[in-house]
Design a binder for these strands. Structure first.
Lengths: 212, 212
DNA sequence: GTCTATATTTGGATAGAC
DNA sequence: GTCTATCCAAATATAGAC
């Protein structure tokens, strides 16, 4: 009876590594030919199998997309440099935007899968989706901890981050043309916070309406 | 001989209206089911034809995508409210961003086709592409006319615009959550211009290096 | 200009032998 | 767990009759 366990472990290890290999191949194809160009035939060829064999590891093609989404969401969570945050507003904003834009730019296919809805039939499973949402949530939480509590400011900040990422990916893939603007953008945003009328860090004393 | 001309005109009129009808159907499908879900069969069904008949009007499916791209680029050119521009920096920036974000948000499928590379096999023809590029170029020209000449500032501005559009489309389709932030964003950007060290409108007298 | 018929490829997915 | 064989559906595209 003591022998049974390790055997089962080896099996599941091999199984997991096979699944990982399949997903790796899928990512390679997605990066090379586009996310929508991923097909079971091509994946199978890449891993030295026949297409039907893939069904031993994934129930469907969308299950593969979902596993890829889950991987990407996991990486997104791990990426965030919470240990680099100091509590200083400008510094922390810079760190977060650098992390986000870098994450997006380093793998456009992953960016497309996680943040854009471009695959006709596919929707991530609630669990996978929750992971990526939670990660975005932590950014918002830290913003609030820095004193950025106005929802409008938070939305503006996310727009700034995605805009930098989007332009970097679309118009200078592999380069750093928009990455080099991040600190400027953060400074601009921080100045706006100290100037604007919203309920933010260092708000102007008592200007305008106090509504909402 | 005088009769021959009008006959040919009627024919080409009918032909053009048939092509327009086909493109309309393609747009409908793209908006309803996603750009990548457009197929000849579905287009044909929508216009009351059989798939092969479409080849009397377009040489291939990609030719249809290209015609859609050209239409979108044309609309993009016409959209721009050059007549609303006054020369006042903040006002003009607001007008341009409102026009751009509104244009993108009112038809995400068009936005996807024009500004994102998501269809595996498709690339717009050089002519169609030139139209959309020229339109973006006119925005840059007007920015420069307003005194925004620093390339970095221009890049930052485009990032801001696309970020607002992208967030609006992705996270509040049909709404106006990010559209309502445009004037704030423009004010933020304008303040940044008057503060930053770049060679922009109202630069700070003589601060930092004069290089580049 | 539109159709039928067809070619050709490819896609995702299942059944069942081994 | 992997394969062959097969299915079924859908896709783009062409040929040729009407």
């Amino acid at each position: 009876m003591v022998i049974a366990e390790p055997v089962r472990d080896r099996r599941s290890e091999r199984r997991e590594s096979a699944k990982a290999e399949i997903l790796e191949a899928a990512w390679r194809i997605a990066r090379a030919e586009g996310l929508a160009a991923v097909s079971l035939g091509e994946i199978a060829r890449a891993v030295g199998m026949r297409p039907p064999s893939l069904y031993n590891y994934f129930d469907s093609k969308n299950a593969i997309y979902d596993a890829m989404f889950a991987q990407g969401a996991e990486e997104f969570v791990r990426m965030e440099p919470w240990d680099e945050l100091t509590g200083d507003l400008v510094h922390d904003l810079s760190v977060m935007v650098h992390a986000f834009v870098g994450f997006c730019a380093e793998d456009p296919a992953r960016y497309q899968l996680l943040f854009q809805r471009t695959i006709p039939g596919f929707e991530p499973s609630p669990e996978s989706y929750a992971v990526s949402e939670a990660s975005l949530g932590r950014i918002v939480v830290h913003l609030e901890r820095c004193g950025v509590t106005d929802p409008r400011s938070i939305d503006l900040f996310t727009a700034l981050g995605t805009g930098l990422a989007d332009q970097q990916i679309s118009n200078d893939p592999g380069g750093d043309r928009w990455i080099r603007l991040i600190d400027d953008a953060v400074e601009m945003f921080a100045n706006h916070l100290t100037t604007s009328t919203g309920g933010n860090a260092r708000p102007t004393p008592a200007k305008g309406n106090r509504a909402t």
